Simulated scan of single mutants.
Amino acid sequence: MTDEMAVEVEDLRRVYRVKSGERIALDSISFDVSQGELFGILGPNGAGKTTLVRILSTLLHPTSGTARVLGVDVGRGERQLRRRIGILFGGERGLYTRVTARQNLRYFAGLYGIPRKVADPRIEELLHHVKLDDRADEKVEAYSRGMKQRLHLARVLVHDPEIIFLDEPTIGLDPIVAREVRGLITELPQRGKTVVLTSHYMFEAEALCSRVMVVDSGTVVALDTPQALRQGHPDMACIDVDLLESTQDAEERVRRLVNGEGSVSTHVEGERQVLTVQSPRGADLVPELQQVLADCRLGVVAVREPTLEDVYVRLISEGRRRRDTATEAEQAIPTTEKVSR
């Protein structure tokens, strides 16, 4: 491992045995993370994000390839490495709810063999840092979900790890609490920590991470800074159409209009249904778009620059189309020819 690298991954594979045969969760992934970096891993459900974090945090062995964290091979140095890393998975599991926050932190400090004279001042500092010092002696069962997540973060830090793995740390939190947790996360590199973060939220990754890696179906789709990923698609203008009332086949009609030169998706924002078209034609497409949707009641039609989420949707969509095309081509090969191969 070089002095600058906290994580080095090369040709990492993980294959699960299932009833139907094998399922490839990670397929020859390679990347690295610099010390002190806040690195994001993005991808849809089932993309391999959690599997990757579990391997890097020594909870799961790879099928093949190598992964080194802080210079230690994750498959051979579990005991050595676990004292130097912290892990936070989304959800509420991992805390003892019938005792207080302070008692939780003392217990976990004890598991790492931290002397009481060292642990107690650190616990007080952490409780203050996560804004739980005024509730530290209440039982955790009375805490809100946001308070539990802040306590989780204090638990992760109690043994002063060098690298922290955060798997969907704001999932299920209300927007105000999620913002508080994100604020705590941004401070971790300032405390000398390397952070590897998985998330479904593109705006979160864009706000927090110095670099992001997009994965899908166990492969790396893209890896760069959020800004570079946005700038790497200069041909992609986005058109947002407010659908106040629409027909069932509105999205399909727009897909036929775009004809493969872009992507089309529909999502709900509050009480609005928004159809988003990504196309190199940009504003030139708007008149044709309005004509195709002439029988729908439309609100605002706006052309804008792409966000990281727009780029993400394009990367995932294009990757899946390529895989579908490859699968169809493979299925079209006669069985005798496959055997001869």
Rank of each mutant, 00 (worst) to 15 (best):
M1Y: 14
M1R: 13
T2S: 13
E10M: 10
Y16I: 00
I24M: 01
V33F: 03
F39P: 10
T50N: 02
L52T: 09
V72Y: 07
E78P: 08
R82T: 00
I85P: 04
L88T: 05
L95T: 07
Y96I: 09
Y96M: 01
L105F: 00
L105G: 01
Y107A: 11
I114T: 13
R116T: 13
R116D: 10
I123R: 07
E124A: 14
E125L: 04
L127W: 04
A136V: 05
E141F: 06
Y143L: 11
R145V: 10
L153Y: 04
V158N: 01
H159L: 00
P161V: 02
P161T: 01
E162N: 06
D174A: 03
V177H: 10
R179E: 14
G183W: 11
V195C: 12
H200C: 04
V214A: 06
V215D: 00
T219L: 02
P226W: 07
Q231F: 05
C238N: 07
I239T: 06
V241C: 06
S246Q: 14
R253F: 01
R256G: 09
N259F: 11
V264G: 09
H267I: 03
R272T: 12
P287L: 00
L289H: 04
D295G: 07
R304D: 02
E309V: 08
E318F: 03
R323T: 13
A326C: 07
E330P: 00
T336V: 11
E337L: 14
K338R: 13
